[in-house]
């Protein structure tokens, strides 16, 4: 009996020493992929993919920032690509292994956050705008409407300092990424003045309440705006006249990855028009992949909410991560607004 156990142990040890089965560890935002995306890749390559999701950028950063998280691929938003690269967390991309890179729209081939796409490829993108009930006349046009007392306090802004400051800063004619003390202070005072007109600070969850009619106007992501307008036709979505914030989520390979070759294959797979179109459809968001967009049904392809026309899109500004001092300034101002 003893000996048999011993032999089983030896066999087990031998099993362990065999080459590790090839596996890819992918860490993405929750609800941000199509059902078939991962299984199809597994079928086509015979490789197992361990796919997990996170709810916030901070959750992901906390896991990968030590450099031994075990993930191969993560999907940070554009604001974190440069900081992660500076921290040495990202592996450089080998464009020769990404033949589908040419499918991206021109403006996503050389974005400000990662010039020449040395470390990241754009995955999906979006913007923040205004979802409103069209019974409100005149219809809201910009962030300035959040300072008007004509909605009976049935107005919300997102529960996120970046988004709320972006709105106030844009209204005052500044950059969404401003960390100038004077501008932050001005935005803070403006927001404290607007707060009595707001019902709540509430993020994507507000969609239900706009659809149900509790809330007449809400700051919200275009993606949520699209879903709400699908549910109720008398809702509208406006891209604010003063300008608005844009974000793009990007696929990166971590420097710690032990499967860079496989990871490149997954990245190239995500760049395939059929794959990217399928994801954009499944999560109702905009794809930066021009070839994928051409595959979408016409009403999705030409959706003015997800793909605003060029003159509107030109008012958008990409988020950047603020350095420590600016971030701290904003957080204190945010606490002041919230406790006012």
């Amino acid at each position: 009996m003893r000996r048999r156990l011993f032999l089983m142990g030896v066999a087990g040890a031998a099993g362990c020493s065999r080459a590790r089965e090839r596996r890819l560890y992918v860490y993405n935002w929750s609800f941000y992929i199509a059902k078939e995306t991962v299984p199809r890749f597994e079928r086509e390559t015979g490789v197992e993919v361990r796919y997990r999701t996170f709810e916030s950028a901070e959750e992901m950063l906390a896991k990968v920032s030590a450099g031994n998280s075990g993930w191969d691929i993560v999907i940070p938003s554009n604001a974190f690509v440069a900081p992660m690269r500076e921290q040495g967390l990202l592996a450089p991309l080998d464009h020769a292994r990404l033949p589908n890179l040419g499918n991206l729209e021109d403006r996503f081939r050389d974005p400000a956050w990662d010039p020449g796409l040395g470390y990241s490829i754009p995955y999906m993108y979006g913007a923040t705008g205004i979802l409103y009930n069209r019974s409100v006349r005149p219809e809201p046009r910009g962030w300035a409407d959040f300072w008007q007392d004509r909605y009976g306090r049935r107005v919300t802004m997102m529960d996120d300092p970046s988004e709320v400051f972006a709105a106030a800063l844009k209204r005052a004619g500044h950059s969404v990424n401003s960390d100038a003390a004077g501008e932050i202070d001005e935005a803070k005072r403006d927001l404290i003045a607007a707060k009595p007109l707001l019902r709540a600070f509430i993020s994507a969850d507000v969609r239900d309440q706009v659809v149900a009619g509790d809330v007449l106007m809400a700051q919200i992501w275009a993606q949520m705006g699209r879903l709400a307008v699908n549910e109720r036709r008398d809702l509208g979505f406006a891209y604010p006249a003063e300008g608005f914030a844009l974000y793009c989520d990007n696929v990166v390979i971590l420097r710690e990855s032990r499967e860079p070759e496989l990871a490149h294959r997954f990245l190239d797979y995500l760049l395939r028009p059929d794959v990217s179109a399928e994801i954009a459809q499944a999560v109702t968001t905009a794809t930066p992949n021009a070839a994928a967009r051409r595959l979408l049904p016409v009403e999705a392809r030409e959706d003015p909410i997800l793909y605003p026309p060029p003159d509107v899109a030109a008012r958008g500004e990409w988020y950047r991560s603020l350095p420590a001092a600016g971030q701290r300034l904003r957080d204190r101002a945010w606490t002041e607004i919230k406790s006012s």
Binding site: D159, P161, L198, A200, W334, K338
Partner: peptide, 19 residues
């Protein structure tokens, strides 16, 4: 509705949005 915060929110913000 996030309109008035408690000290727990300030702590939470430091570990999330304020980083």
């Amino acid at each position: 509705g996030g309109k008035s915060i408690m000290i727990g929110n300030v702590v939470q913000n430091q570990f999330t949005t304020a980083r």
